[in-house]
Design a protein around this nucleic acid. Structure first.
Lengths: 120, 120, 120, 120
DNA sequence: GTGGTCTAGACCACC
DNA sequence: GTGGTCTAGACCACT
């Protein structure tokens, strides 16, 4: 489910965290679904469990997952918690959109694109 | 025209490059307009000219500016070169939009936001 | 017929020389066809005649044109003279081809491309 | 592995960059193979490390190598990145071929030449 | 040890 | 004056 790219200059825990984040926000992993355990993930990637632990810890701090000691880690209902993340996203969205508009892309083209994504 | 934030973790040349890039793509600096010279910018920011030179060099490599040795550096006609940049931007736009949509933001809200930007 | 790009960092006489060279090797200008005079070209581009003169001089040195004092400059039958130029071209051709082949392009694809050009 | 020609009018960093580029695209250096370190190369050529650094930086920007800070620089999987490079190469290939064809070289001669290279 | 950034100061060619 | 290259030497974070 997760892979590590040794050519990627980012730290391993960042790669793991980002990949889980994308799996969660893209809906591949559904709310309350159980994640593979820290040890399991670590073993399958041949990586130190502490590294995975750190990725999970940060995912939990941002509300993407929640952990039940002794039971495991689960996908959170991040939609309620996402307020801060949404603010970040809107900021980037505005910047990107502004540049695209200045490059001559019409608002209509962008809206059509959004609707295309929404259907997908 | 440009400022440096010592609390910004990015390298100085990146800060300078990004600020000029934004000034250009936002239309504050117009095509063929002359940029302040390397030395001038360096002096006004109390920074080594080599650092500014590097920012200018990368801006030129990406087509945002063009340099005429002995004359100065000028804003390029980035709209022609923008084709590649647009591809990058669309890619980020899609990722950001996908995440926002999954967070429950409606396409309509995003479209309205786009139109708000277009008017601004 | 010729244009000058002030954004081009190359010297003006180089721009002129290269543009005439391309017009000649591409067959737009035919052997023994008369070129616009130095003064005429200089006037139409609002440029010092010496600059055009230098371009013509170098074109003549390489056999692309020949000058008849008092009559004008004419396109040469460079196919006989092109020996040295051909050696250069073959060298570049080999380098480019080697890189393309290493990138996985087949010789057949390149040959087809050559035949396409030959027909055009 | 690399040499510098003081009679070459090109900048030192360009000579270094081009020589490494050729070693990579010709397959002498294989993907993920480690390059000599910046300092090592600089020392062996009696050149300032900054100059080599710049060559490496540009190679990385073009995807020919990737750098892992603290570990070293390695040959990239340029065949993936080669798409853009191929476009450039095809463009030059067409120009060179067009000129050769106009000089009276037959497509057959060029194709034979290509096959000769492919076997080599 | 590695890559990466930055400074200070020099020199060149061109305008 | 301009952009561009190069050197010498320092410092940082990471392995």
């Amino acid at each position: 489910m997760i892979s590590i790219n040794s050519r990627d200059s980012r730290a391993i825990y960042e790669q793991v965290r980002e990949q889980y984040r994308k799996l969660i926000v893209s809906g591949v992993l559904l709310p309350d679904e159980q994640l593979p355990s820290v040890r399991e993930t670590a073993a399958s990637l041949a990586i130190n469990p502490n590294t995975i632990q750190r990725a999970y810890r940060e995912l939990e701090a941002d509300g993407y997952i929640y952990s039940l000691p002794g039971k495991g880690s689960f996908v959170g209902d991040f939609r309620q918690i996402g307020t801060e993340r949404k603010r970040e996203l809107f900021k980037i969205f505005d910047e990107i959109a502004a540049e695209l508009l200045y490059f001559g892309v019409s608002t209509k083209e962008l809206c059509d694109r959004l609707e295309g994504e929404a259907r997908a």
